[in-house]
């Protein structure tokens, strides 16, 4: 950690990883970092939330049980409507993705908490999990028929060979990238923006003199306005990630469109 006064205001520093426990296996450094810690916190929160809210198993749900049920039905409906009834096999996977990203994003909004999804490798790994699942399921279920995906019907042959199939292949290949960068960039930009405006408050209050100190109110208002927006983005990105996963799984299950 840099102790120079300028460093703590640097909006990029919040993404730094710090080793909490040094672990080295072979040539790989798999130290337990603040990111790992937040991942564990997110998983523990999700499990505790789902476990404690369902201990009573009441027929008429209480407040917490209601929330848990809503999250369940929300994701289940999403999977059912986009990937069909047979897509429900992957419901736990989509639900895990949704909750993990949602909790990681939301917890990351708490000041001084790290956001694991603000690192491209994490979102890319999640996107690759989806991609690999789609590929395995696609070829497992349909064999080579999965390649139907790149051969949409109702298009003239020439146009198909020259344009449509290459485009379909490119769009399929770029899915993990778009899938991961969308989430990562949103988290990164949101956090930079929040940190930037928050640091303006301190910079103006400390750096300016006299009545100009009151100018710090402007970035304060901005920070307050941005926070609900970021909460919305945190939820929305988890939702988008989950629903795109359902859409991709639908491609794997029903490649013929």
């Amino acid at each position: 950690m840099a102790a120079e006064p300028g460093k703590q205001f640097d909006p990029i520093r919040q993404f730094d990883l710090h080793n909490m426990v040094d672990i080295q296996i072979g040539k790989y450094d798999i130290s337990f970092t603040n990111s790992s810690f937040m991942m564990v916190v997110a998983v523990v929160c999700i499990c505790l939330f789902l476990y404690l809210s369902t201990t009573k198993k009441s027929l008429v749900p209480g407040r917490w049980q209601s929330v848990a049920e809503i999250s369940y039905e929300f994701v289940a409906d999403m999977v059912r409507s986009t990937a069909g009834r047979d897509g429900l096999k992957f419901f736990p996977f989509v639900y895990a993705l949704f909750m993990f990203i949602l909790f990681a994003n939301m917890l990351g909004l708490v000041p001084f908490f790290f956001t694991p999804t603000s690192h491209i490798i994490v979102t890319f790994a999640l996107a690759m999990m989806v991609m690999v699942t789609v590929l395995i399921v696609g070829f497992w279920k349909n064999g080579l028929g999965f390649l139907q995906l790149f051969n949409p019907g109702g298009v003239p042959l020439i146009l198909k060979i020259v344009l449509v199939t290459p485009l379909e292949i490119i769009s399929f290949m770029s899915r993990p990238l778009s899938h991961s960068i969308r989430l990562w960039a949103n988290m990164l930009a949101g956090h930079i923006m929040l940190k930037l405006f928050a640091s303006f408050i301190i910079a103006m209050a400390v750096g300016l003199t006299g009545a100009f100190k009151l100018g710090a109110i402007a970035p304060a208002i901005m920070t307050i306005a941005l926070t609900p927006l970021e909460i919305l983005v945190a939820f929305l990105q988890a939702y988008v990630f989950a629903i795109l996963t359902s859409v991709y799984l639908n491609d794997a299950l029903h490649p013929g469109h």
């Binding site: 990883l17 672990i23 790989y28 450094d29 798999i30 130290s31 337990f32 970092t33 990111s35 790992s36 991942m39 564990v40 997110a42 998983v43 999700i46 499990c47 895990a96 909750m99 993990f100 694991p116 690192h119 490798i121 994490v122 790994a125 999640l126 999990m129």
Partner: peptide
């Protein structure tokens, strides 16, 4: 930092 992040992501996400 990628190995560490990947390792802990797969571990925590796997457990979840």
């Amino acid at each position: 930092t990628f190995p560490s992040q990947l390792f802990w992501l797969f571990l925590t996400f796997g457990v979840l």
